[in-house]
Design a protein around this nucleic acid. Structure first.
Lengths: 351, 351
DNA sequence: ATCACCTGTGGGAGCGCTCCCACAGTACCT
DNA sequence: AGGTACTGTGGGAGCGCTCCCACAGGTGAT
């Protein structure tokens, strides 16, 4: 009452101080209530909450960020041109998982594309300004300098996939080895024996692991592995066509194709058709990703599903953990910082 | 030299003050250089720039936002579920235009989905916290409360399309009337005379305008307008199928269909095929949007192209103008705040 | 009664900027 | 000589928070 309070600005947004005056308490107490501190009595808390509601108080994020040195925002960095972002279902699934998990929190998600050099320049600037508390890095290539930049700036980050078996950053990957193996086992179970592999880009660790799984699947089934029957595409439809043509030359009597992505499988399908082979009667075909393409292909494509959405959720969990750990110089817990989620074969008419 | 300067923190990021000490100038001067003020001598500017480079200084956004009461960020608000965002090329084109135009500036773009009630709740909170300087609103429906919320919060906003002829908000639209008319004129020029219209949702102003253009095109060509031959779909493929079936019942000898979207045209095409009609021999078909669907349809679909990317750029220009105008209580200029960009007919094999 | 130790609270200091006033210096008129 | 005006510069005040220290008042052991 005695406190005649803040200068009589009107029209502007109410501040902490004004809320405090209205509730008849000090600034510190309001701050405690806003931030959910337990050391506030129930009566006081109620009074403050009433004042907040009456005044329609909303904290000023900039002031909070300045004082507390955090932004309550994290970035999803896509080191690809926007085109790919929209073209590949991978990103939309990932975004859905991330968004869902994040909606439980107060954190804000920023989407940042870094396809061109120019965009990467901006991104570097952005990160240097510490405008986010953490970063989710999807689709990183082995030689990308981004992870290093991030750790140099001491910004918590989590990547999807791994750059190698010895990944240092916290990461969430799917079991590419298991996925590749499951595909081959399935083909063998269906009586196929001349199974070729249309691989992905070999500088992508996940693609390598799919090859490893393919090999082991063949060996376990008692079949020999012929290196010539593993041909890398580049994850594109055109690459799939080229690789498929090559495979047909090398092994005209093949009876099954395991492709490292649905898109490449689509390319392979065209070439198989053109060569007069029927799917699945003459040749069984399996893709990877279980994308919309797989469902809409004729015949519908058997494909290995990665739990992308779930991976997105897991990445957020890891990242929030990293961020929290870094706050009060707590000794970093030894929880798992590398997650591998299972892949699953979705059987359709093509195999 | 005499100024022994800032407290010896190390490891942290350099501040304005430290840069000032290093360059042997005052804080104000550094601020002026950083913000590109002209009232700095060349020599001083050079000294400051050198200090900035040596120290690797990057301004603290939070401090700036707090002091200057701006965030240097704008939001692209998509009041749709994410699914539609990825499914419709409209958004990716828009995003490309917006991104391109924005990359010329220091502004940061945030992508915010507000499809579910929950998301809308968050968005309202977000806007109330004034975390952005302005908002781009795409795909607003006539009864959406968002525009009102925005003007109540006094946040500059620009919408794509218009909610009615009397749109109050700054907006960028394409010439739907002209587009509809051009489609019909083209059909008439090709000798078609029984032209039906598969319209969009009639609560979308743009769809209404396409109908208006269709009507005028017929009248100008000396053809009567029959209201029964204008059937609204709902912009979906299924809606297109239903509307097409109805149109075939009402006018079995129609020789041209103008659809209000490519997706509806795709639905119409199926029904036309099933009824044994050939495109374009028996029936000419025109869509709207010139999306990927149009290019890949069999036969390729003639369609009306809206310059979406350009619209995105224009929206940014308008929005930045709004934001700038609002800063130093300058009397609002009377420049055009409602833009209408031309639509263009892209002729392909279907007509 | 003394001390220790809780809980709840108020408010100073400070985060790193921008804004703006003050003022030195120079230039060009009267 | 005095006035006027402009350019370039320094630095105080303040933006709205969080952090943390101080302290009142209670509680229980000594």
């Amino acid at each position: 009452m005695a406190v005649h309070g803040a200068r009589g600005r009107s029209g502007g947004r109410p501040t902490l101080e004004e809320v405090a005056a209205r509730a008849g308490v000090g600034r510190g107490t309001v701050s405690r209530v806003i931030n959910g501190s337990p050391r506030v009595s129930d009566a006081t808390r109620a009074a403050v909450e009433a004042a907040v509601a009456e005044l329609g108080y909303v904290p000023n994020t900039a002031a909070r960020a300045l004082a507390a040195n955090r932004t309550d925002a994290i970035a999803l960095v896509v080191p690809e041109p926007e085109t790919r972002f929209f073209a590949e279902p991978y990103f939309s699934d990932m975004l859905r998982g991330v968004g869902a998990e994040l909606s439980e929190t107060e954190m804000q998600l920023l989407l940042i594309f870094a396809g061109s050099d120019r965009e990467r320049q901006r991104l570097a600037q952005y990160l240097a300004a510490h405008r986010v508390d953490g970063v989710l890095l999807v689709s990183v290539h082995a030689d990308d300098p981004l992870p290093d930049l991030l750790s140099q700036l001491e910004i918590p980050a989590v990547i999807s996939g791994r750059r190698s078996a010895a990944e240092t950053l916290p990461s969430v990957d799917s079991d590419n080895y298991g996925g590749g193996r499951a595909a081959v086992e399935h083909l063998i179970a269906r009586g196929r024996s001349r199974i070729v592999h249309l691989a992905g880009r070999m500088d992508v660790y996940g693609a390598q692991r799919r090859v490893d799984g393919y090999r082991q699947g063949l060996l376990d089934g008692g079949h020999p592995v012929v290196d010539d029957l593993i041909v890398p595409g580049d994850f594109t439809e055109e690459g799939g066509r080229r690789a498929m043509s090559l495979l047909l030359e090398r092994c005209p009597d093949l009876d099954a194709v395991f492709a490292g992505s649905d898109v490449m499988a689509a390319g392979a399908r065209q070439v198989l058709r053109e060569s007069g082979r029927r799917i699945p009667d003459d040749v069984a075909l399996i893709g990877y990703d279980d994308s919309a393409i797989a469902r809409h292909m004729d015949p519908p494509l058997t494909s290995v599903r990665q739990p992308i959405e779930e991976m997105g959720r897991a990445m957020i969990d890891l990242l929030l953990g990293e961020i929290a750990d870094r706050r009060p110089a707590v000794s970093r817990g030894l929880e798992k910082r590398q997650l591998v989620l299972p892949a699953e074969l979705v059987v359709r008419a093509s195999s």
